[in-house]
Structure formats: structure tokens, C-alpha cells
């Protein structure tokens, strides 16, 4: 276990180094720099002013130099200062990441609450109308763009029915769960959670479709195994066989999938965050790209990469708990 962690940590460092290198090079390759953007907003700036600004921001140094200095600061937790806002990038990210992370969490929870029963049911009733309905939902889910679903839901649930807010974020619902349970203040939870519902569904819809399909095919494969027949031959009830023997085995590949999906949600919910005016990391990235705020762009990519690596490691460690064969390898 320790050996795994050490070797993974080593790999993680190499990957992160690569990510930083690629991102900083790409950012530099894009025509125009932050000073151009600032100058566009301040017509009074002279060329000399612009050069002085470039000097002060370290943009005149060679790319390897900039890279080395960036890395040196980053390992100390200093990811630079936002060019436009003059605020430490770490602070900006810390403000935005929780909103994105919690949205990703609820989307994934929602995805599996629906995908697991749907996957099991369509596998057990293969070839029935239920299975075909499942296929239909899957095709619909995969082919419906999230932003379209988002806009349609806003029109219906927010504007027409006035059930749910159309946009915005009112703090963590997860933290409010404790309050709701301990103090019985369900309204506190609901007031935060209702802002999550529409964006979470928008993100989850495609995941429900994909995951239900994956669970269905995994279940079909597992249900044909001899150990299912053996469990039946032992007189174990069907429901117990499906849930204890089949689902447990069928969910193994799904854990990997969930890790990747969580990673993708954490780093790339740009469109949905934009539609719902969600103060997340995706919107921070897009806004920063528009104004060439290098430090923020680099930091967002770096944080996403680190999150991906951490999630993958978590999945690997999780596997050792849920699959005894991996544990002994």
C-alpha cells in the first residue's frame, strides 16, 4: 500500500510537471498577451508604458525562466496574482472550487441514483419494453446537449411553474445537511439545495444514460457467470443474488467510470456554469481566457490536473477495498 502511494506520488509529480509545461507553452503561443488586453481598455497607454508593464509582470523573461519561477512559487502554494483583479490566484480558486465540486457531487449522486436501478432493471428484463425504454432514454441522454436541457428546464420549472430558481448559488447544501439533521432545519438545506437541482440534472442526464448502459452490460455479463448459477443452486433468493452477487461484481468497472466522470465534472462544467450563472471554476477559467489572465488559466488547469490525479489514486485505493483480487496483487 505504502509502495503504491510512493510510486503514484512520483508519477503524479511527473504528470503535473508535464501539465504545467504544456499549459504555459500553449498560453504563450496564443497571439496577444495580457498587456495588449489592458492597453485595449486604456487607449492612453504608450508603447513605452506597455513595455514597462511587461517588464514588471515578468513577461520579458525567457519562457524557461518564467516556467522555472512559476514552478518555484507554485510548490510553495503561490500560484501568482491575477493580472486583472490583483488578487492571489489561490484565493480566487479557493472561492470557486467548492461550488463546482459540490455541483459535481450532486450530479454524480443523481446520476447513480437513477443509473443503478435502470441498469439493473434493463439487464434483468432484457428484450422487454422496459429494456427498449431504457435504450431510448440512453440515446436521448447521450444526444441531448446539456445546455439545451438546461434552457428547457429553466423555461419550464423556473419561468413557467416557478418551482426552482433559474440561476445562482446560495452556498453549500452539503454543509446544510448537518444542520437539517441536527437542528431539524430542513428549510436551510432546501434553500441551498434547490439551486443545485437544475444544473445537477443538466449535468447528470448524460451520465445517467451512459452509466445505465455500462451497468446494464456489466450486469448481463455477470449474470451469466457460474457463480450466479451456483448461488441459485444453493437456494439463495433471486433478489439477493442480483444485489449481493451480481451488482457487487458489476459495479467494479463502474467505480473507474465514476472517478473519471468526477474528474471531468470538476474541471469542465463550463457551459452549465455559464447557463446557470454558477460561480464555479469553469466560469473562472473562461472569463480568464477572455482577458488573458495567465496566472488564473495556468492555476485552473493545474488544479484540474491535480484533482484528476488524486481521483484516479482514490479509485485505485478504493479498488483494493472492494476487489480482494486487486488487494493481493
Amino acid at each position: 500500500m505504502l509502495k503504491l502511494l510512493v510510486s503514484r506520488f512520483f508519477y503524479a509529480c511527473v504528470i503535473i510537471l508535464g501539465v504545467v509545461l504544456v499549459v504555459s507553452s500553449l498560453v504563450k503561443l496564443v497571439p496577444g498577451d495580457p498587456v495588449d488586453v489592458i492597453a485595449a481598455g486604456n487607449p492612453g497607454m504608450s508603447v513605452a508604458d506597455m513595455d514597462r508593464l511587461r517588464e514588471r509582470m515578468g513577461l520579458t523573461r525567457s519562457i524557461p525562466e518564467q516556467f522555472a519561477s512559476y514552478l518555484g512559487h507554485a510548490v510553495q502554494g503561490d500560484m501568482g496574482t491575477s493580472i486583472r483583479q490583483g488578487v492571489p490566484v489561490t484565493k480566487l480558486i479557493a472561492e470557486r472550487l467548492p461550488a463546482t465540486a459540490e455541483l459535481a457531487f450532486w450530479a454524480l449522486v443523481l446520476a447513480f441514483i437513477f443509473a443503478i436501478p435502470l441498469g439493473i432493471a434493463t439487464a434483468l428484463k432484457r428484450g422487454s419494453w422496459l429494456d427498449y425504454t431504457g435504450t431510448f432514454i440512453a440515446v436521448l441522454g447521450v444526444s441531448t446537449p446539456g445546455f439545451l436541457l438546461a434552457v428547457l428546464m429553466i423555461l419550464w420549472f423556473s419561468i413557467e411553474l416557478r418551482w426552482l430558481p433559474a440561476s445562482g448559488y446560495r452556498g453549500s447544501a452539503l454543509l446544510a445537511v448537518g444542520k437539517a439533521v441536527v437542528e431539524g432545519k430542513f428549510s436551510v438545506f432546501w434553500n441551498a439545495f434547490r439551486y443545485f437541482i437544475l444544473p445537477a440534472i443538466s449535468l447528470a442526464f448524460v451520465l445517467i444514460a451512459v452509466n445505465a448502459r455500462v451497468i446494464r452490460s456489466a450486469m448481463l455479463e455477470v449474470l451469466q457467470q457460474d457463480f450466479i448459477t451456483f448461488a441459485t443452486a444453493k437456494g439463495v433468493p433471486r433478489l439477493r443474488i442480483v444485489l449481493r452477487h451480481a451488482l457487487r461484481n458489476a459495479l467494479l468497472p463502474v467505480v473507474t467510470l465514476a472517478g473519471l466522470q468526477m474528474g471531468a465534472l470538476l474541471s469542465g462544467t463550463v457551459v452549465i456554469e455559464t447557463v446557470f450563472a454558477w460561480p464555479g471554476i469553469g466560469r473562472l477559467a473562461v472569463d480568464s481566457i477572455h482577458v488573458r489572465d495567465y496566472p488564473i488559466i495556468q492555476a485552473v488547469v493545474l488544479v484540474s490536473a491535480v484533482l484528476f490525479i488524486v481521483l484516479n489514486l482514490t479509485v485505485d485505493i478504493l479498488y483494493r477495498f472492494i476487489d480482494p483480487r486487486v488487494r493481493d496483487d
Partner: peptide, 24 residues
Amino acid sequence: WRQLRGDRIAMVFQDAMATLNPVM
């Protein structure tokens, strides 16, 4: 049938590796 199986009639299969649930 369920009550009979495993109690009054039982079965042993060919491939014991496949017959046993790998995660149990």
C-alpha cells in the same frame, strides 16, 4: 424450487473458480 435447491438437492459444478463469487 428455491426451498428444495441447496437443501434437498444440491449441485457441484465443473469449474470451481468460476463457481465461487470472486468478491465474497
